[in-house]
Write a protein that binds this DNA or RNA. Structure first.
Length: 469
RNA sequence: GGCCCGUUCGUCUAUCGGUUAGGACGCCAGGUUUUCAACCUGGAAAGACGAGUUCGAUUCUCGUACGGGCUGCCA
């Protein structure tokens, strides 16, 4: 069995779409799970719409998602000569012909066809005209598609799709300015790159039949096809800006971990029994083309967040720190990332269980990131009644006398609360306010352990001092 | 208009002719609890519609409806 080669072939127009990311992921999973290669080809043949920024976005998007590709990326535009060479061969072998029809003639044809209810596929009068009758004018090269029979696309997702050949038009291969058209370029590039499996969006399903015409004419082996259903917005309409984020970099900026994105995207349109939360290794192991669903899937942020939360909580502290700093660097700057790097690590163990994004993680670590004297917000202040402060006053000096362990701190906390005839809950609120200045934080004991004895006592002393004033 | 594809709880999905139609997210109720979260228990919730094939259809076939794609000298 020959090695598997897959590819992702995005066009660099705008940001990297989340659908492209999923297609890339599927290709990557398939190749990586089978010892194959995963290649990148940038389809930049549309000079009007292609931009260098968009190309950068593709590289960055793939890098962030951890979808590493093999070999050097291929830029389609740079291969124009090769595409022209093939078009010329097709012309010579009689599989293609020169068409001198003008744009006006074509649109007139189509208007008339539509008015009469006929097929609007253009039927060029030049298809069977002898060379000697060719005028000395601009022409395009069209493929000569068969008018009879049918083409069967053996698709791994959609199963066999039968299309009548008379539904296939004589598509343009080379424009009148001599530049190759996408439909030709993909086929030539896929062939030259040795692509064995074409896994791409559903929107290309019909195109596959057209492209097979070129494979056949060139006598090239047809790759295995797998056309993925599209990703829809939460309302079932095509995912667009109006639904919020469509570009992968936006998800990166929202603080979702790449591992969670991969997990969610893999699960969107593909399944492995009841497995919901899984690692890359498992996904590579399990991924099969025939387990891909046939219908379009809606994007669900809630599920994405849930999965991301699970991934964050399962990530080792050191790796999580690294990822969070990377996020902070992109979101803000090197300085704020640096500041984070010095304090975040010891707090991770207790906050990673409760964060769905890196942003939430940082937010929940706030107590360790702030410096004395800490600012106490309005809600937290409500907890600092006179009674509360006298409780804190009782507690504070005793903190010198316990070993700094969770057990002893808990025992002390209960003891002090009981002295005031209260349950610990009544002490926890004020303690939280004094230590973090907020009402929503990790457990007060975790905060004390992380802050350390000196800082804890100092923060409490700040409040005690204020209270006694 | 023509051709092609799709349709199971709100969402992602399992099921590959016989199931009390399963799981996950979300939602609701209860529990745990020092806040939030997490966690635990329970609950509501689905085969688009209509025919046909069959002893039996969510599963196979056809039609209808709805959604999507293609129909470019865009990709």
């Amino acid at each position: 069995m020959s090695a598997i080669v897959t590819r992702i072939a995005p066009s660099p127009t705008g940001s990297m779409h989340i659908g492209t990311a999923r297609t890339a992921l599927f290709n990557w999973l398939y190749a990586r799970g089978r010892g194959g290669k995963f290649l990148l080809r940038v389809e930049d043949t549309d000079k009007e719409r292609s931009t260098p920024e968009a190309t950068t976005a593709i590289f960055k998007g793939l890098e962030w998602l951890g979808l590493d590709f093999d070999d050097e990326p291929v830029f389609q535009a740079s291969r124009a000569e090769r595409h022209i060479e093939i078009a010329t061969q097709l012309l010579a072998s009689g599989h293609a012909y020169k068409c001198f029809s003008t744009q006006d003639e074509i649109s007139q044809f189509r208007d008339a066809a539509r008015a009469e209810g006929r097929s609007t596929l253009y039927q060029s009068p030049w298809r069977d005209i002898d060379h000697s009758a060719h005028p000395d004018e601009a022409y395009v090269i069209r493929i000569k598609s068969p008018n009879e029979g049918h083409t069967i696309i053996k698709d791994q997702v959609q199963r066999d799709v039968k299309i009548r050949n008379d539904q296939l038009d004589d598509m343009v291969l080379l424009r009148s300015d001599g530049s190759p058209v996408y439909m030709l370029a993909v086929v030539v590039d896929d062939y030259d790159m040795g692509i064995t499996h074409v896994i791409r969006g559903d929107d290309h399903l019909n195109n596959a039949a057209r492209q097979m015409l070129i494979y056949r004419a060139m006598n090239w082996p047809i790759p295995v096809y797998a056309h993925l259903p599209l990703i829809l917005g939460p309302d079932g309409k095509k995912l667009s800006k109006r639904h919020g984020a469509t570009g992968v970099e936006e998800y990166q900026l929202m603080g979702y971990p790449a591992s969670g994105m991969r997990n969610y995207l893999a699960r969107l349109g593909w399944s492995h029994g009841d497995d919901e939360f899984f690692s890359d290794e498992q996904a590579k192991d399990w991924f099969h083309l025939d387990a891909i669903g046939k219908s379009a899937a809606r994007f669900d942020f809630k599920k994405l967040e849930n999965l991301c939360g699970q991934h964050i909580s399962q990530t080792q502290d050191a790796a999580l720190l690294h990822e969070t700093l990377e996020y902070k660097r992109i979101k803000d700057d090197e300085d704020s990332a640096h500041k984070l790097s010095k304090r975040l690590l010891p707090a991770l163990y207790c906050i990673k269980q409760r964060a769905k994004t890196y942003g939430e993680l940082i937010e929940k670590a706030n107590f360790i990131l702030i410096d004395r004297p800490i600012k106490i917000d309005e809600k937290a202040k409500i907890n600092l009644s006179e009674d509360a402060i006298s409780m804190l006053n009782t507690l504070t000096p005793q903190l010198h006398n316990v070993s700094w362990s969770r057990e002893e701190l808990e025992a002390l906390g209960k003891f002090v609360a009981e002295k005031f005839d209260k349950n610990f809950g009544k002490l926890a609120g004020p303690l939280r306010a004094a230590l973090a200045g907020q009402t929503v934080t990790p457990s007060v004991f975790d905060m004390m352990l992380i802050l350390g004895r000196d800082e804890t006592i100092a923060r409490l002393a700040d409040v005690n001092a204020k209270g006694s004033n």
